[in-house]
Design a protein around this nucleic acid. Structure first.
Lengths: 233, 233
DNA sequence: GTTCATAAGTCGTCTATACAACTTCGCCGA
DNA sequence: TCGGCGAAGTTGTATAGACGACTTATGAAC
């Protein structure tokens, strides 16, 4: 294995293990030169590529630091819905329908790819934008990765915000489809008859495991999902 | 400007101008050393970063070449719907409803951010998966970028396929929402009453211009949009 | 105490060189 | 004609050294 890759992996491993957290200082190029007995150019390449990957941020004269939770993926923004709403200048409010610990059954176990009986949390939250329900979030979380998930107050911090804080995001998968809501959904979202919903299934991986499965349901007429991608020089 | 950036830009410019096309050979590191009077490490960095950006592919022993149209964006796959259907093992068929040249009017001009009167093509195509309509594609294309768009046979090559061939994709923007179809849509997609659709608005840029605006409408129950993103070491 | 100059630490870039691995192609011999 | 060998070209990686720009802390001068 190339030596610059070994350096990158050692730092990525430290992030995955929690030995390095967002904001923490990463060894400087000079220190890596000593630790790994490489030339400075090799240490430089390792850190430079980690910066390109968004793992660290570097400031000339200051040092290299683990990047904040996630500048987000490249496209579909994994942003905090609370922030998003506040940026639009509206009040944000959350109503927690439920948040309890469960054992995975034959229906829920496949969602997180675990065996039946595994402990997990099951939360349902309705997010409001200025009194109007804008998203229903039904989420399953691996209990082992977030043991105190059941005690959190999601009116103060969204599950997304909490999870990106305690578990470094490694991979995200989205599926989007358009359906008609069932009666319960319709009630929670305050929809009139015949209004469709946009349903997004979001799965997130951390520390090499699938840790969360969420259904995010929006009123089709009150929500747009936006994504952009561009190449640069 | 750093010298490796100057090299990258010169190559990116050549791609944008059409002087370099997919598959074309890019000057080797040794040639760049002579052309730009830099050290090989500097030329190497320029080409290496272009490879990371997906602009070129490099093969040890062989050379560096402009990458194929697009390995796709990073997430939402800009894939050929025909390929996608065939990969699922079904027959693909397209029905061209219209394909004509128009002048931009007050409604269509803003879509491509051009002034009223600009020549553009307006095509409507229904894509079928094994007899079932799976997508309606209504698209506006800047005529100046694709002068022969009006003469193409879209039952043999999709607009997407054609456009990515003649114009290097620089930026893509997606917006997704869920709505109820109007009567005409419902007919074309063969939907029963009360079935919602997933409507995606896709805008693509090439050579620094917005060149295409497309509405892609899918039956909500017969389509899923999928996207994934992951960081690697 | 405040302000300013200086020094140390750090990253950003660039050079010159070296060796290894791989690809391609031509040449030579069987 | 076919096969194999080797040379030339190309990329991948690594080293040692250099200079510049920026940040931070230290300490001196006011």
């Amino acid at each position: 294995m190339p030596r610059y890759v070994a350096i990158k992996q050692s730092i990525c491993d430290a992030v995955r293990d929690g030995r390095l957290n967002p904001g923490d200082r990463v060894p400087s190029e000079a220190e890596l030169v000593q630790q790994f007995d490489v030339s400075r150019m090799t240490a430089n390449r390792a850190l430079r590529e980690l910066q390109a990957a968004g793992v660290v941020v570097r400031r000339a004269g200051s040092g290299s630091f683990i990047a904040e939770p996630k500048p987000i993926g490249q496209m579909i923004e994994i942003r905090n819905i609370a922030e998003e709403i506040r940026e639009r200048g509206h009040a944000y409010r959350a109503r927690v329908i439920q948040n309890r610990e469960e054992r995975a059954n034959v229906e829920t176990a496949p969602l997180l790819e675990v065996s039946v009986g595994t402990k997990l949390f099951h939360s349902i939250i309705v997010h409001h934008e200025a009194e109007f329900p804008i998203q229903i979030e039904e989420r399953f979380v691996l209990a082992s990765i977030a043991p105190d998930y059941g005690t959190l107050d999601f009116t103060r911090m969204t599950p997304n915000e909490y999870l990106t804080r305690i578990a470094p995001l490694e991979r995200v998968e989205h599926r989007v489809c358009s359906t008609m809501p069932d009666e319960r959904m319709r009630g929670m979202l305050g929809l009139s008859d015949g209004e469709p919903v946009l349903q997004m299934t979001r799965r997130t991986w951390s520390r090499s495991r699938l840790v969360s499965h969420a259904w995010l349901t929006h009123p089709g007429t009150r929500f747009e999902l936006s994504a952009a991608f561009s190449i640069d020089d």
